[in-house]
Design a protein around this nucleic acid. Sequence first.
DNA 1: TCATTTAACGTTTTT
DNA 2: CGTTAAATGA
Length: 728
Amino acid sequence: MSKGVKGVDALLVGLNAEQARAVKTTEGPLLILAGAGSGKTKTLTHRTAYILATNRATAYNILAVTFTNKAAGEMRHRITELLGGSRGNRNLLPFMGTFHAVCVRILRRDGEHIGVPRNFVIWDEVDRLAAIKQVARKLNIDEKKFPPRLLAALISGAKNEMVTAVEYADMAGSPAELTAAKVFPLYQDLLKENGALDFDDLIARAVELLSTQKPIRDKWQQQFKYVMIDEYQDTNAAQYQLVKLLTSSHHNIAVVGDDWQSIYSWRGADYRNILNFENDYEGCTVIKLEQNYRSSKNILDAAHNVISHNKDRSQKKLWTPAPAGPPIQILQVSSERAEAEAIVRRIRTAVDGATNNFSDFAVLYRTNAQSRAIEEVFVSYSLPYRIVGGLRFYERKEIKDVMAYLRLIYQPDDSVSFERIVNVPPRGIGTKSLEVFANWRASEGLSLSKALAKVETCQLLTNKARQGLSELAEITSSFRTQIDNLTPEALTERLLRKLDYFRYLVDGTPQGEARVENVKELLNVAAQYHDTGLSGFLEEVALVSDLDTVNMKGSDKPPGARSEDRPNAVTLMTLHSAKGLEFPVVFITGLEETVLPHSRALYNVTELEEERRLMYVGMTRAKQELYLIHAVARGLYGGYVANPPSRFLADIKDSRIATAAGVLAFEDIDDVPGEPHYVLELAEGEAVRHQIFGEGTVLEVAGETATIYFKGKGTKKLNIAFAPLQKI
DNA sequence: TCATTTAACGTTTTT
DNA sequence: CGTTAAATGA
């Protein structure tokens, strides 16, 4: 251990009795039932540091699985601090990452034993959908009757349950399942042909590897002597098996979780994994963390009253010595605009009065679509905000296209990437030529890479198409020889130049400008992967979620910005994204039937309970103040739809009778934002300066709204009356 | 083959 | 309403 390490006992300071017990229980199975805000991450990080500081194991021997890469980063950061080590010795830290990241590591090293190529690529949601579409078309499946999305979901569900294509065919019953059963094996063939694995395969194939290859399993079991799993309530069957396989020899397995916060069942997560843990692992130690360190008593009580309406849950009672705090406020507003304006008003008041920073606030919603109205109002009132998730950097077309090139260079047989970029930028290859090429390839029995290499010999193609394809072949193969010589950044940079990609992107529109900016940002991201090579870069891009990144609106920061330096801005995100976070003041929006609970969950007890857990997660994010807002009517498909207040609000109302008064305050908000006053007369084409966005050009003026293009920041619609604008 | 138009379509949450 | 997929015209 480095000499910076504090005494071992110092690692127990500041922990309560239960937390300390969890830290000191290093051997054998350990189940930590950790309520919201009970110091779960603290316990885990201290436990890891304790194992290291007491020389029970080296960092190499510890595996910590987290739900997001961000959570892993957070743990890494805190453990470094605990150990007093410098930031430089990252490799002295245990492996921490998501299940998917762990599996990638295992499969890259040993996957070849079960036929997983060393240079496999990872297909994301979009790639998988494209592939399934491809298969469905080949099978003449009616896309109207069986949408590829549905088939993809069924196949994904099967993989999460470790059901193979053959087994699935036997158990398929409904027409949709029977169709999926036909697609499933062909989809797997396609993955194999392309040297690709989808998200589900990463787990499933790792399980296959460890369960069939005993020497490999022994090796990894020996490496990972201590295994910790965070958010255990959100593990699925495949992940459950993986954990079993990794720990069956030593049983040093610590899991942490809270069934009350299980919100991913739609992804195959099964919170019974945590409820059954005691039976699964004999001699298991169980520790409950029930003291809440986060929320005021009012917030905690209200949240408890909500979750109490669920039947299917473990028993525990969170408590806090904290004072009651201000009452929870339920606001009724007329529309989603009024909702956003009510929020703006409150934030403005608090910030102007210097009681809070913008970064103290979080606005939570059920669906990403709800963010639009909030964003619009925030922009028009010039409230700084950042969005977590939603608009995904790596899902933008221009980014996906560049990544497809890089993947094709890396994995020559990745036909999904090939089809994506074969005509980007346009080189005269349409669906017809592609079809001819595919048929020729099939008749000659050539792999994609081989076919491309000798495309010159294909007489069936038109001259133009043949020329285009051989040009593409030339580009990919020449760059392929450079993979090890160039950094990912240099490789990408040269590729873009070769393709004259920026010229292709600019079309005179602001959107074209924005696309160029995005690709430039991608170069910045690539620059962070000098050490890892192209494979490392591709991997990171495939596995990072937007939970790990920060999207500043107005500046569209690329992924890679760490959350530690959180900007002074309000955070907007879905309730799902909010798990694990905390804020002094939280607004939960859209508390209406059909929004929260969502319409698809209304008539299903199981799903309704999950919606309630979602509500619980949202409420327990708040430290001091909690606002629950419902709109009388909400815009949907154009028209306005009125919905009754969410039943979850009634769950709390009950509590007012049962518990002390002052838990709740009700308020009606009107939606008149005040008479707008025009401070500026703007004309189209005029140059302006905005306090936040910088210099821009006015594109359009409609009433009090001006559409302005800011170089590098994109187009913004601003309220002239409120936006901090001046002419230049 | 490609760009522009029009029609249809659908909104849960994400590794 | 806003986005994306098919259909049309050049």
